[in-house]
Simulated scan of single mutants.
Amino acid sequence: MPPTPLCRRSVILGLAAAPWLTGAARAAGPLRVVATMSMIADTARALGGEGVAVQGLMGPGVDPHAYRQTRSDIAAMVNADLTLWHGLFLEAQMEDFLHDLAAHKPVAAVAESLPRDRLLGHDRYADRFDPHVWMDPALWSGVSDAIGGALLSVAPDLPVEAALGPYQAELASLRAYADEVLGSVPPESRVLVTAHDAFAYFGRAWGFDVQGIQGVSTESEAGVARIEELVSLLVERQVRAVFVESSVSDRGLRALIEGTAARGHTVRIGGVLFSDAMGEEGTYEGTYLGMIDHNVTLVARELGGTTPEGGRLGRLWRPA
């Protein structure tokens, strides 16, 4: 059971006498970094190299919208030299704790650095934004700037500047690859239906009509009317595949398949997309670059586009 808010606050406020809060230099060795999300953790490792030891809190299949920090998470963040979180209301259940922590330790909400005019609105909160910015590598390039800046603010000797250019060049190549393969999908087939609305930035970047059974947050529930609306769309547009997400239940998608079958149209599960979490550690899909390569290659292939075997670098579905 996660600690109560009072317990979380007492843990943080009980650190007033700790040496790192009195101006003492951090311990020798790699910079100890904790990242809430695996995408942030992977990027921090790419930019910090051997100079960082990064721990990600949310592994494969974990839903960040509903995630609550555990006692071990609290201990990790309290003892870290730097905590990186996404922001934009993604880690909604952790925000109070992270704001408390920021009063005592280096903490950075890296996606909050993006210009507001590049963000999409949230479907449930008028004053908030869709947090799924990692779905567009061009936006993630801006987030990587913020991650690099946060690392350098704590450890100026890290080789971040040397790593950032090549990393962002990889992001640009990934975006160009996605432009090519997703551009090969026939325009009438550019309908992407998934479990929740995590792909709006994907849709904006590549001209897809993106439909989630649930809203931006996985905590919203899909009603019968929403299922019927999507069944009608699938039949009308003759969409041939819908997609499971690795961190979200496929129950709603099964209802769509049954509903379209009842109307004489066959829709299959096109495969599993990575939405709020990456693939298994140690695989290519367990990196940010591999995650997006997987998503764009699978969507293009299943919706009628042309893709190379193994994706952009020929590494998909193989060990890293």
Rank of each mutant, 00 (worst) to 15 (best):
V54R: 02
R116L: 15
S144R: 00
V216C: 08
V299R: 10
G207C: 10
L98K: 03
R71H: 06
G165L: 10
D73Q: 01
A18E: 13
I74S: 07
H104A: 12
T194Y: 05
T218S: 12
R226C: 00
G121P: 13
G311C: 09
G183R: 00
L151N: 02
G48Q: 08
H65W: 03
G314P: 11
P137N: 05
V231L: 04
L90C: 05
M77H: 03
V242K: 07
G282V: 10
S72C: 03
V231T: 12
G212N: 10
S275P: 05
L13M: 08
V296P: 11
R301S: 15
V110W: 02
T297P: 09
D123L: 03
G279Q: 04
R9L: 15
S144D: 00
A108I: 02
C7W: 08
T83L: 09
L90M: 10
E180R: 13
L253C: 09
V299F: 08
T43H: 03
R240N: 14
G121N: 11
L164G: 01
R268H: 09
R45T: 14
N79P: 01
E180G: 12
L88W: 02
V239F: 10
Y67N: 00
T287W: 03
G223T: 05
L101H: 04
G149C: 04
P156S: 05
I40M: 08
A28P: 15
V210G: 06
R32W: 02
T287P: 12
P159G: 01
P131A: 01
Q93H: 14
S38P: 13
D136V: 11
L256M: 07
E170L: 11
Q214M: 15
E161T: 10
G121Y: 03
V52G: 07
E302W: 05
Q238L: 04
W206M: 11
G142V: 12
R175I: 03
A16V: 03
G270Y: 04
G165R: 11
L253T: 09
L256R: 02
D96A: 14
E280M: 13
Y177Q: 03
H122E: 02
T36P: 00
S232Q: 13
A155G: 14
V242H: 05
R254E: 11
S144H: 00
V299H: 06
E285H: 06
A176C: 06
G212H: 11
E170P: 02
F199H: 04
R312P: 07
V34L: 07
L90I: 06
P166T: 02
H86G: 06
G48L: 09
M135W: 03
F208N: 05
R32C: 06
A200Q: 14
V299M: 13
P159R: 02
A108R: 13
A163F: 06
A25G: 07
T283G: 07
A198L: 10
R268L: 09
A53K: 11
G142P: 06
V160D: 00
R128G: 04
A163E: 14
V224S: 15
T43M: 13
A66F: 06
